[in-house]
């Protein structure tokens, strides 16, 4: 799908009829736009903003794909295997982009790589919704879908995640004296 065919924002004609999945799709548009607007405005801490955006994007991707695939499985969707393969292919593409981005040290090259990733995400989401997700529009029902927020699905998708990896404050020696 080209830029002309794909809107910058999510539009109702991209709806698959299930609110939780539509919300996920909207979020992909928002994060892609967030990256592109940061690149345009070029703030002082652009690299940190891009790294945060990319981290969140990866989490979105994992959580959303898990939500869709669980719903397809619950509904007995016959094209689940094909759909899963497309998800895996996109995850691999995004992973490669992130790996490449992490190796870049030049500021301008980072901007170019992030711009490319934002475009790839935007175009892929448009194309994927229009051509692949629409195929399950009449098959999946709301009751098949786990409607919890993406954060929880993302945490379940990241099975290797350590529950204590966030606890920065316990890394300093000594507790408070209360």
């Amino acid at each position: 799908m080209t830029d002309q065919a794909c809107p910058i924002e999510w539009t109702p004609d991209l709806s698959v009829g299930i609110e939780a999945i539509d919300d996920d799709h909207k979020t992909f548009f928002v994060v892609a736009d967030l990256m592109q607007s940061a690149i345009r405005e070029n703030p002082q801490n652009l690299e940190a903003i891009l790294r945060s955006s990319i981290t969140i994007l990866q989490e979105y991707v994992n959580g959303h794909f898990l939500r869709e695939e669980r719903a397809m499985e619950a509904a007995g969707y016959p094209k689940l295997a094909e759909h899963h393969a497309l998800h895996e292919a996109f995850k691999a593409t995004a992973h490669r982009f992130v790996e490449d981005f992490n190796k870049i040290v030049d500021h301008n090259e980072q901007k170019k790589a992030a711009q490319k990733l934002a475009e790839v995400v935007h175009d892929w989401v448009c194309d994927h919704i229009a051509k692949v997700d629409m195929a399950y529009k009449d098959f999946l029902k709301a009751e098949h879908v786990d409607s919890r927020p993406l954060a929880f699905l993302s945490q379940e998708a990241d099975e290797g995640g350590d529950d204590d990896d966030f606890d920065l404050m316990s890394m300093i020696p000594g507790d408070g004296p209360q």
Binding site: A48, R51, S52, I54, T55, I56, E59, Y60, L150, A151, F152, S154, Q155, D158, G161, D165, F166, D167, L168, M169, M171, I172, G176
Partner: peptide
């Protein structure tokens, strides 16, 4: 970290921000 903790912060995160770590 000591100063923020003793001032009453609940938790701290280092950027890049992560939704999973935030929650």
């Amino acid at each position: 970290i000591y100063r923020l903790r003793d001032a009453g912060i609940s938790e701290l995160m280092i950027r890049p921000l992560s939704a999973a770590i935030f929650f």
